[in-house]
Design a protein around this nucleic acid. Structure first.
Lengths: 351, 351
DNA sequence: TGTTAGCACTCACTCTCTCCGAGTGCTAAT
DNA sequence: ATTAGCACTCGGAGAGAGTGAGTGCTAACA
């Protein structure tokens, strides 16, 4: 990387990206030469810019305009600021404090996270609700609601719960229902929900004697519910503030795509394992995001990754700030959630 | 009303509103005279238009432009189309069919309702989740989750459930917790949740012997949860298709206001009792909605009103269509929900 | 007396043209 | 290797002119 571009080119490129992030306008050689950190004449800078254009780091909207950074330039830029990105202690404190005020419901904490994320960055934020796949089943309760339905409450060792309405087939007696419940608790407790869903529930289906089919359907819908994923999206309207979206039809298609909801899967999915991902422009699978960058980070409860969050902004977003905020937010959210969910002695570590 | 404006004026006014709803452009006398339903010369129409302007039904953006309807005109227009508004049987069938495909979870039905509402009208839709205030408590279960917390599951006679995580004060034994639960069930079952919340829970607090304060806090948070209201908003991006919002800053402030969430309270609140409400332009309390019209209708479960839904569009929205769709949707949703929630013999009527 | 034709006037829009300036690339001097 | 100088490019802002949809008034008409 360093051998690819000499120091002077690097400086110029960084300066261009910095400037373009700020102004959204093509950057010219004169503008750059006025900067304190570049002590070169416009002509020299022009030569360097010409080189950078040839190397694919800069683009020219039209002949008589300045240069704008290419995706390649952002890539390089991002890899350089990555370690530099850090919030001041004050800002970090602020985030932590605000998040901790809202500690009654998990959903509220997630909402507040999304709100702060978009509030601070001025971009669009998406925060995933924590999923339970890796949590271990503690027990399942079935609460009869009407004669035709019952509420299944799944309690995990991480303290999180999830409840689904199940259709109870009319032929099933409450005795039978109790038997099924205790069978489930006996056989499934202690296993990860993802395993319960994928292998154990199907196995169990076969064991159920009478009414096997309808019980299977019931267990199936319980299984489906574990997959259910929800997201909080905040700050979509922020995008309208950027000249990139001053064209209403662009804004429209972005918002529509956001509402469609498919974005979330693409954006948040493969974050598993990786701490932080930056996807710039066309690196995003979704063509609707080709002028956007998406930065994703995951958060944890008790060391186990349970969800992720992302910030979506124009490709010329303030990467440094967004990375810094996301890092801090991920830490804060992880600790707040861990505090909420693992408060009891028996709700401890997963591994 | 009829004596206020003679038939010819009424016809002209209606034609202007119709045309303006379609085109969003000021309507001129020549355009009107070309219509089949108005057989007058432009000059005559001009005279009538002049009168209508004086009477406050029409406005003129500038001297050499046509006329646009005033809020007063929309009011009159709406009161006239109100009974006319009706969907074809096909459309009604379509709505009902689509809604019934999604009958697993109440939340999904509400989402689908919102989606269809904005899909058909091309405006923004808000649908309130059904509230439980008027449902009667059947029983409460407390499921221990960790030593510090329990999940309270509230089951009502309408079959709907609601669950909240409660902090269980550390001093309370599981014996004590059981006692509290059975005390609650004994004393509160059969009452409306709104009464449970407002008068019965506070009374109960005083009766709890030991640990009164912390139990009270627990009951308090249970009570808070009954008030919790959620909404589904769909189609905000639709507004960008209308020339009214081709100004990005207007679109931006509308979307921001929508995200802030206060709108919902204002929009959906006082629908109680009234079947259908039309609020035009400045009739809305929220100044952000002064260029919008909001049509609200409530929906019921088993005859009892449990929520409402609204469509927000520009003041020149297609009132007839929106009213018709809302009426149909309210009926369909009411019947689907009633079917879902009241399916059991003992989950019947509330009154 | 209500309706219509005719006419002068208004005014937002669109189109064209020009001008301006920021920016480039090349060449020659340092 | 760097820089000053210069000719050239091209988008965008601004000024005018022309267009046309629309009005209001007046006078003629049925």
């Amino acid at each position: 990387m360093t051998q690819l571009l000499d120091v002077r080119k690097m400086n110029i490129l960084r300066a261009i990206v910095d400037d373009y992030i700020l102004t959204a306008a093509p950057v010219g050689s004169r503008t750059l030469s006025k900067r304190d950190d570049i002590e070169l004449s416009p002509a020299t800078i022009r030569n360097e810019m010409s080189d950078l254009t040839e190397l694919g780091f800069l683009e020219q909207p039209h002949t008589s305009a300045g240069r704008i950074p290419s995706e390649k330039a952002y890539r390089l830029y991002v890899s350089n600021i990555m370690d530099r990105a850090k919030l001041t202690d004050d800002e970090a404190e602020y985030i932590k404090a605000h998040l901790q005020r809202r500690v009654s419901e998990v959903g509220d904490v997630i909402k507040e996270t999304a709100r702060m994320l978009s509030g601070i960055t001025k971009y669009t934020s998406i925060v995933q609700m924590p999923h339970l796949k890796n949590a271990r089943l503690k027990h399942i309760s079935l609460i009869p609601v009407t004669t035709g339905s019952a509420l299944a409450v799944v309690v995990t060792n991480s303290g999180a719960t999830n409840s689904t309405m199940l259709n109870v087939p009319s032929g099933i007696t409450s005795d039978h229902l109790e038997k099924i419940t205790s069978l489930m608790n006996e056989r499934l407790a202690g296993y990860k929900l993802v395993d319960v869903q994928k292998t154990l529930l199907p196995m169990l289906r076969e064991e159920v004697g009478e009414q096997a089919d309808s019980v299977a359907a019931m267990l199936g819908s319980l299984s489906d519910d574990i997959d259910r994923q929800d997201y909080e999206v905040v700050g979509a309207a922020n995008m309208l503030d950027y000249p990139e979206y001053s064209d209403v039809s662009k804004a429209r298609s972005f918002l529509t795509e956001l509402e469609r909801g498919e974005i979330f899967k693409e954006v948040l999915s493969d974050g598993s394992g990786v701490e932080l991902t930056v996807r710039i422009g066309t690196e995003n699978d979704n063509p609707e995001l080709k002028d956007c960058s998406v930065i994703t980070i995951c958060y944890r409860v008790g060391g186990e990754q349970v969800g992720s969050m992302a910030v979506i902004g124009p490709t010329r977003m303030d990467y440094e700030k967004v990375v810094a905020v996301l890092k801090c937010m991920s830490e804060s959210l992880s600790s707040v959630l861990s505090g909420m969910l693992l408060s009891s002695p028996d709700g401890g570590r997963n591994e």
